[in-house]
Amino acid sequence: MPPLDVPALVDHHCHSVVAAELADDVLAGLLTESDRPPAPGCSPFDSALGLAVRRWCPPALGLPAHAPAADYLARRRELGAAEATRRLLAAAALDTCLVDTGLTGAGGHPLLPLGEFAEVSGARVREVVRLEAVVESLAPAAADWPAAVCAALASAAAGAVAVKSVLAYRSGLAVPPERPATREVVAAAGARLRAGHGRLTDPVLLHHLLWTALDVCAGLGLPLQLHTGFGDPDLTLHRADPSLLTGFVRAAEPSGVPLVLLHCYPYHRQAGWLAQAFPQVYTDLGLTASYVGPRAAAVLGEMLELAPFGKLLFSTDAYGLPELYLVGAAQFRHGLGSLLDGWRADGACTAADAQRLARQVAAGNARRLYRL
């Protein structure tokens, strides 16, 4: 049976990388979603993701696969951050990266600006605008809040390929199926302005922001990405279940705006159902494929139990470390190849079916959705 050819990848949701030299503990800390130090006697390298890093990354730096973590870190220091980053991103072989610019640093260091990231990665780079980051610095009069939010989002998104919400982190995904009343928005804006600027956490303002983003996306022809599923300890996991969005999805359906569910795990089956049930819903596994390590093929299979093949997208959600780009790409290629090889061997699909599916998920679906 000939091997599956997984083509160049379009990473439809990711972040930039750190250019600075990183201490070993800082680098290891970026191999977990936790922002806490590891428990005594534990290391982020001793995880499914850590195994994946040691499997895929050492050969890019001239070491054998599965080199011990200490040897890998020493080789990385020997090459220097710039050369290690260049090699790791080249090995990921990404065609296009859609970069969420809402995060500006990792491990205490700034992320590369988009132009520099494009240069070092060799990929075509486009921006995804994070909604909450756009409005958190606004300070209009309370009565002007609705118009100011709309104008700020329209301006920020004018050159982007998508916008993204991290509502799941702020108030959860149980969004009411109707827009907040203007008087409620004005009252909440007044309370926020009196309290001073800062992180946007008021549910009324967050829900108004999401509905406003829907209007802006409809006008500009952009998809709306939403974080769902696991993340750092700032998240309350059960409030990030994408099925909580069902009422909003129904109410948003007439707008025609594509809603893209990111990451999803451990609720990826719920996301697959939403993608099957609602024409405007798309989904991915994002960093899940990296974090589950040897289980990547199995989790991809669980997503594809229900998700239409034209609705599943590839992304790494890589952040800070170039290793996460390579691991995300390699895990996806290997996992999807293993899954589809099993389907072919079982007679579930032909070689042509498998190749078409791989091309769709790797790049074709993203090119169509984001009009690349």
Rank of each mutant, 00 (worst) to 15 (best):
P266Y: 07
Y291G: 05
A275L: 08
T283D: 07
Y265M: 11
F309A: 07
T288D: 12
F314I: 04
L287C: 13
P294W: 03
G301T: 00
A307Q: 03
T283N: 08
R269N: 06
Y282L: 11
L312C: 07
A307M: 01
Y267F: 15
W273Y: 15
Y265T: 07
L287R: 08
Q280A: 13
A271V: 02
L285P: 07
P266T: 09
Y265H: 15
L285N: 09
A307G: 06
P294I: 05
Y267W: 15
Q270N: 13
G272L: 05
Y282Q: 11
Y265F: 15
K311D: 02
A275W: 05
T288A: 11
G272E: 10
Y282G: 10
P308Q: 00
V292H: 13
W273I: 06
L287S: 13
A271Q: 10
V292A: 10
A277P: 07
L287Q: 13
Q280K: 12
T283A: 14
F278N: 10
Y265L: 12
A296T: 05
L274F: 11
A277K: 09
R269P: 08
P279Y: 10
P279D: 14
S290L: 02
A307R: 02
Q276T: 08
A307C: 12
A271W: 07
V281Q: 15
Y265V: 03
G293T: 05
G301Q: 00
F309N: 04
K311L: 03
A271G: 14
G310Y: 01
L313C: 04
A296Y: 02
Y267R: 09
Y267H: 14
L313P: 03
A296G: 03
E305Y: 00
Y291N: 10
A297F: 01
L285C: 04
V292C: 12
A297L: 02
P294Y: 00
G272A: 13
P308W: 00
F314G: 01
A271S: 10
